[in-house]
Amino acid sequence: METGKINLSIDSDIRQVQHVGEAVRVLCSHLELAGAKPSSVELAVVEAINNSIEHAYRSESGNSVDVAFEYDADCLNIKIKDYGVPMPTSIAGQLSQEVIMPNGSVDMDGLPESGWGVQLLKSVCDEVSYQRIQSCNTLSLSFKLASVTA
């Protein structure tokens, strides 16, 4: 099984995010990472970058968001790094909580219009974790890869 590392970097401009998303989808398709659905990996990376831009950089462009891929036979690990303010505790706390989605009897008018990003991240990734070291925020996403047998 091929192993590898790929790094991408974009400006903290929400209009730039789609380019990374599309690159991620193509990359996953090209590498044929069994078990990592390209559309799910794209969704996770886009949500993570959106989070960096909206919260760490408060939607201001001119800052850097770095995306690092590392894969081997067992796992695809993606780290999204920014250098803005720490992730709000309300969001970081959700990372360690169980995902609870609304059921069919919920009042539609009471549905939240935001806050779905972390829930989606947790739904599509096998593991999600957050670290702040010095002035760097790192959101780590992990996808277990299925072993391919001949």
Partner: peptide, 14 residues
Amino acid sequence: FMDSSGLGAVISSF
């Protein structure tokens, strides 16, 4: 492709 912001906009529209 749709992300959580798109989903939020759909909920808001509803």
